[in-house]
Write a protein that binds this DNA or RNA. Structure first.
Lengths: 222, 222
DNA sequence: ACACCGATATTGACACTGTCAATATTTGGA
DNA sequence: TCCAAATATTGACAGTGTCAATATCGGTGT
């Protein structure tokens, strides 16, 4: 999960001991990594300041210097999630041929991210656990929103600036709602009964394809 | 929130005191009411066994007899939420003229419920806080799913039994995802930037109308 | 080379939480 | 009437976030 090695090894012998140097050297990132590991291993309820500190081999109050409080750590983690989500959406977008394919590709990337990181995805959309005013979080969310908006505008107007903003807002909301709802229900386990009726070796992906296709076909006559 | 009066008054003088009789008489429902009030007042993070007990004027361990643990109380509360949500969806469905109007009406009822009960709606879809095996919860969720399924089938086939189940499953998922995603994003505050661009005295409702309409029109040409 | 100051980390305490065991009270039926 | 089951209380325990006080380290100015 981390992209950088700690400047000083946290603990030479293993995990959890406290033999490391008094100053960790890269504690902030190490705590974020530990927190994400907890999130992955035990879900959003298992993410705890003290647990993250213990896993990093550091005292229980050490996180305070870097994040202030639990909400701060969660917000930084969520920001990291939004950044990576946007990155994967952009990658999917860049690989798409037409603007219409791009929308589907973005949607698939969105759902794939949620499935690959269920705990993190949950955290990202629990605003009561987050401080929306944290710069890192605000900008990460904004970046993702701009990316989505760009894709919708590209599909709708082909770059013309005279597009109807009301229609664009509606398209953004519809696309985001559809994909976000699918991802949310899927991660929460609510689609399991429906997935049981979908054949194939990857029912989740198949069902998502059907859902995405439903936006392009008229509803059944009558 | 409650539908039944307590058999014995909780506390004759006010709230919070402990002057009431040793046996409350209707403690289970009283605790559910208190829990829902907490949920409404302080959000999902403020829902606490001890707070619910205190608000009911009862000792901190009293809830254990009726719910076992916090997860039990939350599950019962969520079950109540699903029951009421299904009731409002059914009412909307019964008032609709055509099967197509019915789908929109159900969607609007779904979002209206989420907006009217944001904390409860959040709780209902946080499966890590719930015990999915609780009979009350299982049946309430199943009832709502059946109602949605019925509406989709009615719109698609007009009652014919030869409907393609794959298509039905896809329609159910698409409709649920769209509306659930909208409700979730709205309650979480994620649609605020988009709502700012929607004119009218009720932007939320207007935006939902646009989103629902987007399912019926082909996406913009090209 | 040395002293010092800010950044970083630790320790200890507090209030709050869920949960459990032991106890007390009440209710209802044999 | 009396006993057992249901219901509620009390007290304790481990775990949590948060804060104040303290300790240690890294770098800067002299």
């Amino acid at each position: 999960m981390s992209t950088t090695e700690p400047a000083a090894p946290a603990s030479p012998t293993g995990d959890g001991e406290r033999g490391g140097p008094y100053h960790h050297g890269n504690l902030k990132q190490a705590l974020l990594d530990a927190a994400e590991a907890l999130l992955r291993r035990e879900g959003v309820g298992g993410l705890t300041l003290r647990a993250a500190a213990a896993e990093t081999g550091v005292s229980h109050a050490a996180p305070k210097n870097h994040f202030g409080d639990l909400c701060g750590l969660q917000s930084e983690l969520a920001a990291s999630g939004f950044r990576r989500l946007a990155g994967q959406m952009r990658a999917a977008l860049d690989d798409a041929a037409t603007a219409d394919d791009a929308m589907d590709a973005i949607g698939r990337a969105y759902v794939a991210f949620a499935v690959a990181n269920p705990g993190l995805f949950n955290l990202m959309y629990r605003s009561e656990m987050l401080d929306a005013d944290r710069p890192a979080l605000k900008s990460a969310v904004s970046d993702m929103a701009m990316l989505l908006r760009g894709a919708v505008v590209a599909r709708a107007g082909g770059g013309a600036s005279g597009v109807n903003t009301a229609a664009i807002v509606a398209d953004i909301t519809a696309a985001w709602s559809l994909v976000h709802g699918f991802a949310t229900l899927l991660v929460d386990g609510r689609l399991a009964p429906l997935l049981a009726h979908v054949k194939g070796e990857n029912p989740e992906s198949s069902l998502l394809d059907l859902v995405l296709a439903s936006r392009k076909t008229r509803p059944p006559a009558r």
